[in-house]
Write a protein that binds this DNA or RNA. Structure first.
Lengths: 231, 231
DNA sequence: GACATCAATATTGTTAACAAATTACCCGGC
DNA sequence: GCCGGGTAATTTGTTAACAATATTGATGTC
């Protein structure tokens, strides 16, 4: 059998970038703070930078707009979204509700393997914390939560939660400023895994609520600090 | 100077349709069943029909795609989304969580005026029911819920709920098939308003759960009937 | 008659050129 | 020095032509 047909599907052709991965790249640049809130994104520049057509860039903007990451104003282009405190509050209320449901479902569906994977991910976070590697920590945190939400076996829910989390992504304002918060986060991760293992819904609800509340505080704190600097 | 500059902002020019209203028109045609699930939407046809450019049509498709109303496949165009039973189940789980939160917030924020408005809306539904006017009933139902969610004063939440509700819009499969369900719906509406007025969160949670559960049953029933017909 | 192959058609994807709007800049007046 | 007006440059919005892909239909073979 010749391999050409098989390869066609597996290799997405380096010469022409996949639209979805192009969107992801811009998304990542926003999440990692390469593009900062209020910064204007210019079609021609991005088109040049990534070697795609202006048209593709516009399409990507539309997607990012509905995800809430950029704001489009007719004839004035797009800027990286900046969340008001009001919006942050709104989003965290929603996240609290959705993540509680997700963890409840995950607890119901959890297997021994899942628990092992989660514990491994918690450890990865802790290792990164020991090494003081902020970037790895953020990745580990994201992976931990995403795995936990994936366990809910509700794809729609998982995607909605991830979109909301991205809108208040940690690195965008480099939250987690204080070391105390970090210790709390790690402790809460451990407890969440325990509660999932025990399928203890009541405990999960409380933990989830608290965990998100801490996330919100850290985020708002950082947001205020940034704003104070800018004005 | 001439008055054109002032008018420019207030009158959106009838000759050129606003992008947002164009999207809404397609959206409505999907929701009201003018475009049916699995039906293919052709750029050129819509472009011709509404007198807008193909480009605008494509943009609209992108928006509708992220709202979950259409599905885009490269080089194969877009079709009106058809939800699998799995997806419907997923969506209703999420709706239950979000609508509970929304109603809880609404109860906290409710004023005497709000209650009056809600009661009026319930009555409008009941009147339409007496007149056997299905279309008005759907509109009244939508308005009732939207007003209740608006009262939560959480715009993000309100929009998310509305998007989810649209994905399982009543008319798309003409749910509410049985008269018994309709009686239940009306009774629940009355009870929900009462609970909001009394700010009785526990009651609201139960009512909300039940109301959505009924909605889900009606929808799934109709979905199955449609599928049985098609296959 | 069913199936595969290939051409014709229809539809989507991409690009480039052009129009419209905004922004930036310069200049004169006060 | 600062404000207003107007022009130039930048950037976005639109259109139309062209390329790539999928779908359809016809043809021929078994």
């Amino acid at each position: 059998m010749n391999t050409a047909t098989k390869e066609k599907k597996t290799t997405p052709k380096k010469s022409k970038m996949d639209f979805q991965s192009f969107v992801s790249r811009i998304e990542n640049m926003i999440l990692t703070g390469k593009f900062k809130p209020r910064e204007r994104l210019i079609e021609a520049a991005l088109s040049e930078m990534f070697g795609v057509s202006r048209y593709t860039v516009r399409d990507a903007f539309k997607v990012l707009e509905t995800k809430g990451l950029v704001t489009v104003t007719p004839f004035r282009g797009v800027v990286v979204s900046e969340l008001s405190q009001q919006e942050v509050e709104e989003i965290f209320v929603i996240r609290a509700a959705l993540e509680q449901v997700a963890l409840r479902l995950s607890a119901q569906n959890s297997t021994a393997v899942d628990i092992k994977v989660l514990r491994k991910m918690v450890k990865k976070f802790e290792d990164a914390h020991r090494d003081d590697d902020f970037v790895v920590m953020v990745a580990a945190d994201t992976n931990f939560h995403d795995y936990a939400f994936q366990m809910s076996r509700n794809k729609t829910l998982r995607r909605m939660i991830n979109d909301l989390r991205n809108r208040c992504h940690i690195i965008r304002y480099s939250a987690w400023s204080s070391p105390t918060i970090l210790e709390q986060v790690m402790e809460e991760h451990r407890l969440i895994v325990d509660a999932i293992e025990a399928r203890d819904v009541a405990a999960l609800n409380k933990l989830s609520e608290r965990h998100i509340s801490h996330g919100k505080e850290a985020y708002l704190l950082r947001l205020k600090a940034e704003n104070a600097l800018l004005r």
